[in-house]
Amino acid sequence: MVWEGMLKDEKSSSMYTITGTEQQQIVSGLNREYHIFISKPNVEPPATGYPVIYYLDGNSVFGTVVEAMRIQSAKPEKTGVVPAVIVGIGYPTDSPFSPARFYDYTITRGEIPMRSKPDGTAWPDQGGAEEFLSFIEEELKPKIHRTYPTDPSKQALFGHSLGGLFVLYALFAKPAAFRTYIAGSPSIHLNERSILEKETMFRNQLEKQTICADLLIGIGELENNHKSNIGNYAKKMVGRLSNYENRGLKVNFIEFAEEGHSSVLPPLVNRSLRYSCETWNRSFQDRQA
């Protein structure tokens, strides 16, 4: 694994930067390269360490979530948002999304139902979700914990679209990896067979043991009419998983009015901050009870 220092653009002295953030390059043990965006609170950490929220597709959402956190965490007593470390997991590209995400966020190779993308080009390689989750758990999270004082009991994972699919996979495959899971507009239709198999195994596990996890699934209102049926898939999964609150899984659903698959991302990112803090507070209260 390679962990390099902060990247600088020597050609442009006027480039805009976000205060309190840095960027790192990591090459995983399986030789996959990631661009990691990190924001650290400008306040002293709690005795137990900072909470941490990991955001997939860091290239597209990091700036949005950092500014939302900076503004809201300034008055946590009013907003309910406490300072937390933000980690955006991205790729070495200037684009908001990298084709590499198809491999990292999908469960099985070749399961996407269409032979080619809507524009006629071939789909990128797929099926690396297990490897990607291992990278987060065994390489990235330990590095973040060694670099910053963080609280392992207050960790959240956020993903949208294919990233939302991966969030569901992570919950089903390793529910103790995070306290809070936020799946926005999950692309269940692209890996329907695999993710439903994982869900069934997860629900069977819940029949035998309890966990401690919160799941938020969010969609845009306009996704109810999307040709992929993405909204209906999400609602059906919420319905099935909501039956396991007595086994320690708390499920919430939110639908943002007049938002579509892409436009839902900013309000969902904003909501993820307060939702994560709510789940962490509830966990603390449960331990105190």
Rank of each mutant, 00 (worst) to 15 (best):
W3E: 01
W3T: 01
W3S: 07
S12K: 14
S13T: 01
M15T: 06
G20W: 11
T21P: 02
Q25V: 13
I26V: 02
I26G: 04
G29W: 14
G29H: 13
G29K: 07
N31K: 14
E33C: 09
E33K: 15
Y34W: 04
H35Y: 13
P41Y: 15
E44P: 01
P45E: 07
P46Y: 05
A47I: 03
T48P: 12
I53D: 05
L56W: 09
V61M: 06
T64E: 04
V65K: 09
V81Q: 14
V82H: 10
V82L: 12
A84T: 00
A84K: 04
V85T: 00
S95K: 08
F97W: 13
S98F: 06
I107H: 02
R109H: 09
R109E: 04
R109Q: 12
G110F: 12
E111C: 09
R115E: 09
S116M: 07
S116D: 00
P118A: 13
D119V: 08
G120A: 14
W123N: 04
W123R: 06
G127Q: 15
A129F: 07
E130L: 04
F132A: 09
S134V: 14
I136S: 11
E137C: 10
E138K: 15
K143Y: 07
I144C: 07
I144E: 05
D151S: 06
P152R: 10
G159F: 08
H160N: 00
G163F: 12
F166M: 10
V167S: 09
L168E: 01
K174T: 00
P175M: 15
A176Q: 12
R179N: 02
R179Y: 05
Y181M: 10
I182F: 14
A183V: 07
G184Q: 05
I188Y: 10
H189M: 07
E192D: 15
E192W: 13
I195N: 11
L196T: 09
T200P: 13
R203S: 06
R203V: 05
N204S: 10
Q209I: 11
Q209H: 07
I211G: 15
D214I: 15
I217M: 05
I217H: 05
G218P: 14
I219G: 03
G220C: 06
L222N: 08
N224Y: 02
H226N: 12
G231K: 05
Y233F: 05
K235W: 11
K236Q: 15
V238H: 11
G239F: 03
G239Y: 03
S242A: 10
S242M: 10
Y244V: 01
N246P: 04
R247Y: 08
K250R: 14
E255Q: 04
F256E: 08
A257P: 04
A257Q: 11
R274K: 15
Y275N: 07
T279L: 10
T279F: 11
T279S: 13
W280T: 00
S283K: 13
S283R: 06
F284N: 13
F284V: 02
Q285L: 09
Q288A: 01
